[in-house]
Amino acid sequence: MTQLILEQALNGLQFGLMLFLLAAGLTLVFGIMDCINLAHGSLYMIGAYLVAAAAQAADSFWIGLATGVAATALLGLVLELTLFRQLYKRDHLSQVLATFALILISNEAVRLIWGAQPVMLNPPAALSGPLEVGGFFYPAYRLVIIACGLAVAGLLYLLVAKSRIGMWVRAGAANREMTEALGINVQGLFTLVFVFGAALCALAGGLLGPLLAVQVGMGESVLILAFVVIIIGGIGSIRGALVGSLIVGTVDTLGRALLPTLLRATLPADAASTLGPALASILIYLLMAGILFFKPQGLFPARA
């Protein structure tokens, strides 16, 4: 029983932390720049493909990860300078349309370059098995993912809460006009945040690649989850993104693990097996609706 609870908790944590990598960049872009970026998931997908390609070329997962993340950050820079910079001042409709177009383009481009079938990315051989501590088993690679996620979360906390740049970022999220009036180079700040967000996307894509599959369309499903996270957490808040990610990760994992069993104890077997998976798959949306009902601005609204 301890094994089960501990293992599920770690699973929830792992899922939540990876969501956080995606949500962190997204929430800042939304919060500071007031810009809807549907193509955030595409950066995640492209990042995963670049990591896979680099890992194959270098025959090393870690070199591949570093190269892929750097390349995606560079792509983010190019996108920001050529496209997004023009979108910030535009209305939401243009932003949605332009980034939806980006999704179409990047999905097809990936299909053209890497084909329609999923690309394989394998974890380093040393991490392909389980780690055993006193009879407790957990996949070694997932532990590494958790460690990476925690490290990034810690780093982000230090950056945002303690550094000068972080202060500007928070100021930008809370009141953009005032920040500009104080003479801070918001343009440069935007570029920095966007590139950082792109790098985090690629990191998540590269780390999850070996666990999941590197395939066209992988960005869209995860994008919606990242949206749910930042709606729950409050747009523009890193703290909100972290809390939201962990809530979503845990609720989703526990829902899948416990709901079928719970329902079976209370309902007839047939109804339980019909209702269980359905309920588990919409649990986080129900949670979101519940939170919105009481706190329409999310748990940690960046703007008072």
């Binding site: 029983m1 094994q3 089960l4 293992e7 599920q8 699973n11 792992q14 899922f15 088993f137 996949p139 997932r142 666990l211 999941l212 599959a213 994992t253 526990l254 899948r256 693990a257």
Partner: peptide, 13 residues
């Protein structure tokens, strides 16, 4: 579905 962590933990138990 691509991630089976939750199901695998259940199976282990």
């Amino acid at each position: 579905q691509l991630d089976y962590a939750a199901e695998l933990a259940q199976i282990r138990s």
